[in-house]
């Protein structure tokens, strides 16, 4: 019998052999990392909205995700796209972190207080910012980082390295 083209392997009762875990597990495992990516793309103030759009879109598409997919990379891709959409819809540059108040109130979350660093991240050239985010924040390997930012693996590695060097010098300059 000829193999059925494109069909996924199925068990004796026709259920997939490899199946997707409950979406709750995806939120718990990857939610914090995706939030950091969102904060870095659109700034801490709009990150919650972009995170919510990212996970709502992911929830909608989840049943069609191949069970052996890199879920973190898939989420980072959606967050990247949603962040870009968000910036375009606001018709402003990705320097959204400029809206961060100079003196965060006592209720501000600790992760939001490092304004100098995240302002420097937002100021990086697009590919360097993406490479730093997806490799150092989202833990993706350079091959996948390259796919996200439209570069080769080697170029993604260089971009992450250049981006980190820029961050260091910028941050050190702001905090002598």
């Amino acid at each position: 019998m000829a193999p059925r083209g494109g069909a996924s392997p199925t068990g004796v009762r026709g259920t997939p052999i490899v199946s997707l875990p409950p979406f709750e597990a995806v939120v718990v495992e990857h939610g914090p990392v995706v939030l950091r990516v969102c904060r870095a793309v659109v700034g801490p103030h709009d990150a919650d909205d972009v995170w919510s759009e990212t996970f709502l879109a992911a929830l909608g598409a989840y049943p069609r995700l191949a069970p052996d997919s890199n879920v973190r990379g898939w989420l980072a891709t959606i967050a990247h796209r949603k962040g870009i959409d968000w910036i375009r819809s606001r018709n402003r540059a990705p320097l959204a972190v400029a809206r961060v108040p100079d003196h965060p109130g006592p209720t501000a979350e600790p992760a939001l207080r490092d304004d100098a660093l995240w302002r420097a991240v937002a100021a990086l050239p697009t590919k360097q910012r993406g490479a730093v985010l997806y490799h150092y924040v989202a833990d993706l390997p350079y091959a996948e980082v390259g796919q996200l930012i439209g570069s080769s693996e080697a170029a993604a590695r260089r971009a992450a390295s250049d981006g980190l060097r820029t961050l260091r010098s910028t941050v050190n300059r702001e905090r002598p």
Partner: peptide
């Protein structure tokens, strides 16, 4: 710079409570 790397990856209690709200 180790400090920059650590700060990039910093995920304090604030992030955890943010996820609960989100």
């Amino acid at each position: 710079e180790p400090d920059v790397l650590r700060r990039l990856r910093h995920d304090g209690d604030g992030s955890i409570s943010a996820i609960g709200r989100l």
